[in-house]
Design a protein around this nucleic acid. Structure first.
Lengths: 192, 192
DNA sequence: AGAGTTAGGAACCAATTGGTACAAAACACA
DNA sequence: TGTGTTTTGTACCAATTGGTTCCTAACTCT
């Protein structure tokens, strides 16, 4: 019926997500965004409404991809017992961070601090993602026979340990600290 | 010898610090900065070199005021045993956060994620502050008779729990989560 | 009072911000 | 081959960015 678009919206969005993830909303200028997505203004504003919409889509994408993957891993019985899964997640983060210091951190965590972006809509998305992560931790603990109340409390402790580790990673301090943090997570996983 | 300045650089810097703390470097436009500091451009560029310098000074100020205060508290024997002091610190943060959701969080933590600002110079300052906080935790544990190695590892776990709680606070989730997080910190303080 | 010195404020600056308008280009279908 | 439809890229936009200049105001000291 008409001219087909020359770019793949999915890969463009992926690039956009990574950029926002890396530098935040405000710091990602439209020019940088366009060059990262490898499209020009015309296509950008036709395909996506505006910068803010792309940011919101990037958050959704992070939720769909990364958060979902993490939650799935936490709930996957084939990955070991509940606490093993949790420890495995932290290990993965610690490794990824220790390897060269990922410097990207967690988009969710970064965006929570960014604040600049997306007004109330973004905040709601961030809270949903956080809740999902919390739920993942809790489920893994429940799978290990934790009482519901204990699981809930521990999940929140783990959540904050997770974000904390991610913050340290961003600051380039995780390489030496990741190991110790990991050891401390084990203590959070002990049965009373 | 000459015309005296009409503003107090100290209170102006305080306002500047709070603004950067609240919205980050990039998001704080020069106009906002000036109106917050209640001075005009002329005075601004005369008294402080430029925006970046003020940001760096704001970090220094945070270090001098808040971080120093926190480290002092952690090392103050009159505030109870080491672990009590640590718990007291988290309690203070949790309360401050629970009261209405401070929404400011921790400038250090925010700046670590901000990244936009101050290039390598800022990063160095952030690492120094983090180290000081880590040292505070460690000292408190050593005061309680922890082995040096255990104290160091635990301090890093506490550090990440601290940052994590601060992230949750920024996202407006701490009101309900702070209590549980606090309970989990207690577990990090247990003697092996 | 006058000289010297510094602060304050407005006018101005180029560069960049996010966003729009529109014409040319590229396709599908008849 | 033409017609209709959509994408693409360029030119353009007002508003804002951080920053400089420079004149005037305000003060201290002699």
């Amino acid at each position: 019926m008409a001219r087909p678009r020359e770019f793949d919206p999915d890969v463009a969005m992926e690039k956009a997500m990574v950029l926002f993830w890396d530098v935040g909303y405000e710091e990602a200028s439209l020019a940088e965004l366009l060059s990262a997505m490898e499209i020009t203004k015309g296509s950008f504003y036709k395909a996506f409404r505006d910068k803010q919409s792309v940011y919101l889509l990037a958050l959704d994408r992070y939720n769909d991809r990364v958060i979902s993957g993490t939650v799935a891993f936490l709930g996957d019985p084939s990955a070991g017992a509940g606490r093993e899964r949790i420890l495995g997640l932290f290990k993965k983060v610690a490794d990824e961070v220790r390897a060269n210091g990922d410097r990207l951190g967690c988009f969710l965590c970064n965006a929570m601090i960014d604040r600049a972006a997306g007004g109330g809509e973004a905040e709601k998305k961030l809270q949903v993602m956080t809740r999902r992560l919390e739920g993942g931790f809790r489920q893994a603990l429940v799978d290990d026979g934790f009482e519901e109340a204990d699981a809930r409390a521990s999940a929140r402790g783990l959540l904050s340990a997770y974000f904390g580790l991610r913050v340290l990673g961003r600051a380039g301090l995780s390489r030496e600290m990741a190991g110790d943090c990991l050891g401390q997570v084990e203590r959070l996983l002990r049965r009373d």
